[in-house]
Amino acid sequence: MPDLLVDFEHVSFAYDDKAILQDISLQIRRGQLVAIMGGSGSGKTTLLRLIGGQLLPDAGAVRVAGSNTRELSEAALYQLRTRMGMLFQFGALFTDLSVYDNVAFPLRERTDLPESVIRDLVLMKLQAVGLRGAATLMPHELSGGMARRVALARAIALDPQLMLYDEPFTGLDPISLATIGTLIRELNDALGTASVIVTHDVAESLALVDYIYFLADGRIIAAGTPDEVRASPHPFVAQFINGRPDGPVPFHKPAAPYLRELGLEP
């Protein structure tokens, strides 16, 4: 198994004419827990979709586990995805299936295991996220944090080598947030996966991850370990980490001069 699981080489991506990502290069290795941080609309989620092969780069190459996503056939791409797990922002559980069936879904669809084995695997995965007792519930009966833990159990059902997390901390209470954070770290270390977390939650991820990439306007503007990032003199990083309202990212959206617009000045 190649050690280098994700490899971006000068990747650019645009929707229509709007550039989302420009000249991104990054590497993620086995065992690493990497955070991609940036403001809203900085292209973080697009980056995840590029890794998952749901989008293909306009320029440059995205290699996942050694294969270039652009050169894969549809079948090979789906084969590659069996080695990835993705946790979506709000869990994205199938609303018409119970918790148990949700976790069993990838196993039933992608393996030929007998139902008794699937049952054991599902209970194991649910146990890992602490929700074996919720197996019979329907998704609408779960709280936000529980739904995300079920989704996490579902994402790890096929024992992936690469975990992708899209905003895993958004909208959670502090207890759930800590639970998810611990789970992500533990799963990463126990399964020996590489994990990519896309987030703008500074405090939680600085405590959690091994390496951080900062994304702004579709470019990587800074990178480093949590300690390096904390000490970074880069104005954007400093503004982001400390959560200041004004800085390189201005408080005001560019507009005509205020006084002139009010008619107080010619």
Partner: peptide
Amino acid sequence: LMKATEQLSAMEMMAV
């Protein structure tokens, strides 16, 4: 609704 709640996307990422 399945699309808006990313269920279709999740399915794709589960290789289905």
